[in-house]
Simulated assay, not measured.
Amino acid sequence: MRAVGAGLLLSICVFTIAALNGDLMSSLIHLFGLVGLGCIILAALFMGAFIDPDTRRVDHFTDTEETASQRTRWSKTLLLVGLPNIVLFVLTYLLDAVILN
């Protein structure tokens, strides 16, 4: 639950930066998308989604349970931090594309 709270706090920081930038809607769409996508990519990196399957298999058998657990925990945390930003990205995009235009 703290990770979602951290994601919301990060979203507030993104909103503040976008408000200072000038073009609010465009900046919000870009920044929410960038932060959310960045968190998802980092979570995938921690889980080993972008490595060769043979390397992943070797890592599975050579890693300790503690290391694997720590990687999974970091991945879940990053995913939960990025989730509010992705939701706000979609809502901001829909608000800009459908309602305001």
Rank of each mutant, 00 (worst) to 15 (best):
P84T: 01
W74E: 02
P84Y: 04
H30S: 10
F89S: 00
D63L: 07
V4G: 05
L8C: 10
L9T: 08
H60Y: 04
L94I: 10
L80R: 07
R2I: 11
L83A: 15
V35A: 14
T72F: 02
F89T: 01
Q70I: 10
I17F: 12
G7D: 08
S27E: 11
L91Q: 09
K76P: 00
T64K: 01
C13P: 00
D52Y: 05
C39D: 06
V58P: 00
R73Q: 03
G33Q: 03
R2C: 00
M47I: 03
V35H: 04
V90W: 08
L20H: 10
V4K: 13
Y93K: 10
L94C: 13
T16A: 15
V58Q: 10
F61Q: 09
V58F: 04
L28W: 03
A6Q: 05
R73F: 05
Q70S: 11
W74T: 04
T92N: 04
D96I: 00
T77S: 10
G22N: 11
G5M: 10
G7A: 11
D23W: 07
G38V: 02
V4Y: 15
R73K: 08
G33C: 01
I29H: 04
F89M: 05
M25L: 12
S26M: 05
D63A: 12
M25A: 12
W74Y: 14
L80V: 00
T77W: 03
L31V: 01
T67E: 15
D23K: 12
R56H: 09
S69W: 08
T92W: 02
V87Q: 05
L95H: 13
G22M: 08
R57N: 13
R71Q: 12
R2E: 09
L37F: 13
F15D: 01
T64L: 03
T77D: 01
D96M: 06
L45Q: 13
L42R: 07
L24Y: 12
F61Y: 12
V98C: 01
L37P: 00
L45I: 11
S75L: 05
I29F: 04
T67R: 15
N101L: 03
A68S: 12
